[in-house]
């Protein structure tokens, strides 16, 4: 009996320690992701400082010009960018886990339904490429956004097929993406 209690106690302690360790790992992954995003936003702002500030205008050509110039500046500053630069393997695994939890919970059916009704898009993705103007932007279910790390306004999460995309909002640029992120 005493041996059983000791074994049970040790098992509980081991499970707690593992959970604590995993929690720390999760937090570290999220911190790592946020640091990488902050680094990108710094680059985005540096690129933007080189351009005239975009304010509401009657001229759509001025909006497009600003978008293209910002895209060109950012591309020039991260020529070597590759898929996985921000969503590293560890961060991607953490995101897949977070998305998996969200999409298996009580709101799973609701989120799947939302994705289906949002006019799903399929698209070959490439880091540093512009999101094509003629392809609709699929909406991202709010419950999914609630469970992912918060982003600064310069970037957003978008769903393209089963991929989760990090997109530069103003430059309309694909910053990075996670393949097979959406179950």
């Amino acid at each position: 009996m005493k041996r059983a209690i000791i074994r049970l106690t040790l098992t509980v302690c081991w499970a707690n320690a593992r959970s604590q360790e995993r929690g720390n790992l999760d937090a570290a992954s999220i911190d790592n992701f946020e640091a990488r995003v902050a680094e990108y936003v710094k680059l985005h702002n540096t690129a933007k400082e080189k351009l005239a500030r975009l304010t509401p205008t009657d001229a759509p050509s001025a909006i497009k010009r600003h978008e293209h110039e910002l895209t060109r500046e950012i591309r020039g500053m991260r020529r070597q960018a590759r898929q996985g630069d921000i969503f590293s393997a560890g961060i991607s695994a953490q995101f897949r886990r977070l998305i998996g939890i969200t999409m298996k919970g009580p709101q799973a059916a609701r989120i799947q339904d939302s994705l289906q009704r949002a006019e799903p898009v399929r698209l070959e993705l490439q880091v540093n490429a512009a999101y094509p103007a003629s392809v609709p932007l699929q909406s991202t279910p709010p419950s999914l956004l609630m469970n992912l790390p918060k982003l600064p306004p310069e970037v957003d999460y978008r769903v393209v097929g089963d991929k989760l995309v990090l997109r530069d909002v103003e430059a309309n640029l694909i910053v990075d993406f996670i393949p097979h992120a959406i179950p």
Binding site: L54, T55, P56, T57, D58, I63, H66, L137, V169, N172
Partner: peptide, 18 residues
Amino acid sequence: GNHDDPNERFYKPFNMGG
């Protein structure tokens, strides 16, 4: 909408104020 470029918010006649 999902067919709109989010930068439409800078188009003054849409009155979105950016």
